[in-house]
Computed example of a mutant assay.
Amino acid sequence: MSHGAGGKASRRLVEGLFAPLLLSSSSERLADAAYVEIGGATVAFTTDSFVVHPLHFPGGSIGELAVNGTVNDLAVSGAKAHSMVVTFVLEEGLASSVLEAEVRAMSDALKRAGVTMVGGDTKVVERGKADGMYISTAGIGSPIPGVHVDARTVRPGDKVLLSGPIGDHGITILLARADLDLEADLYSDTRSVLPMIEAMAAQAAPGIRWMRDPTRGGLATSLNELARDCGLSVELNEEAIPMRDEVRGACELLGLDPLHIANEGQFVAIVSPEFADIALNAVQLTEGGDEARIIGQIRKDPANTVVVNTRYGGTRIVDMLVGDPLPRIC
């Protein structure tokens, strides 16, 4: 299960098996989406799969999640989603009402995102083989003018911008499974981050160095991947990281690090210092972006490392996710 959690095991699987055999002829660096030339035009392309359990949870469901996740992978790669295709893997015995609800949720999310579904496929497997429903998507989009996302452009002094509170999605899914006797007024943050990124790009495109939506593995894993790819250090201010009390409390009770908890409606960006305040203001003025914050900066040392300045005056090094504390969250 840890190989699908987005942390160290996932990275070893991709870099040790998939990339050498399947991507050896590609010059693209691994990211949430790839850019390809087709007939002289540049398009962004991404794919994703969704195996969340339960299918419906406070704040969203697998159908809505599939659309938002695809749109967001393109958005943080500097592209605006245009079209999608979808594959449903359905389990024998799935109630037609459940399927209809998820198709309707997907339709509504497509309308909100301004994306067109242009095709798909359906498969049915034996009872007990698919946990109700799995969804896979692929999406294409067009580059957002002026935005070029590349970890190699990150420099010491750049600022770390976070669009909103972390951990809502992962903890909501955990509580929705009823594995714990905890009550919390908490909802998944699943949504499209494209409006916030477009607003930021309109004001600060030249300063946007890198972006990522911190889903599986959380904020810590995304920033560790950045630190490794750019060879620099990411320094975070723990007090500046927005987080709901319910998330903090659940993590303290369960011994989890909120920085490793999945998000489905947030993005983290590295912005040059001269554009940081402009970018932050643009995000905060966009609907849903009022809790965006500058949470840290890029340092030269210690290289390839994420360091957190704690609220108690100390520092700690945060690694990417090891293991799989919250399986089947997206």
Rank of each mutant, 00 (worst) to 15 (best):
A5F: 07
G6N: 03
K8V: 11
R11E: 15
R12I: 11
A19S: 13
A19L: 06
L22W: 07
S27L: 03
Y35K: 13
A41Y: 13
F45P: 08
D48H: 11
F50V: 01
F50T: 04
V51K: 00
P54D: 01
L55M: 09
L55F: 02
H56Q: 11
S61D: 14
I62Y: 08
E64W: 05
V67K: 13
A75T: 07
S77L: 00
G93N: 09
L94I: 05
L99S: 13
A101T: 14
R104M: 09
A105P: 01
M106N: 11
V118R: 15
G120F: 01
G120I: 00
K123P: 02
V125P: 00
D131C: 01
S136Q: 03
P143I: 04
I144A: 00
H148K: 13
A151W: 09
R152V: 03
V154D: 01
P156S: 04
D158E: 04
S163Q: 04
G164K: 03
H169K: 09
L174C: 02
A176Q: 04
L182W: 10
A184E: 11
Y187H: 15
S188C: 07
M196A: 06
A199H: 08
A202V: 04
R209N: 06
R212N: 10
R212F: 12
L219S: 00
L223Y: 04
N224V: 09
L226G: 09
V234E: 04
E235N: 15
P242I: 03
A250T: 15
E252F: 06
V268W: 12
V268K: 10
V271C: 10
E274D: 15
D277V: 06
A279G: 05
N281S: 13
T286P: 07
D290R: 14
R299T: 10
R299S: 12
K300G: 11
V308E: 01
T310P: 00
V318S: 08
V318N: 03
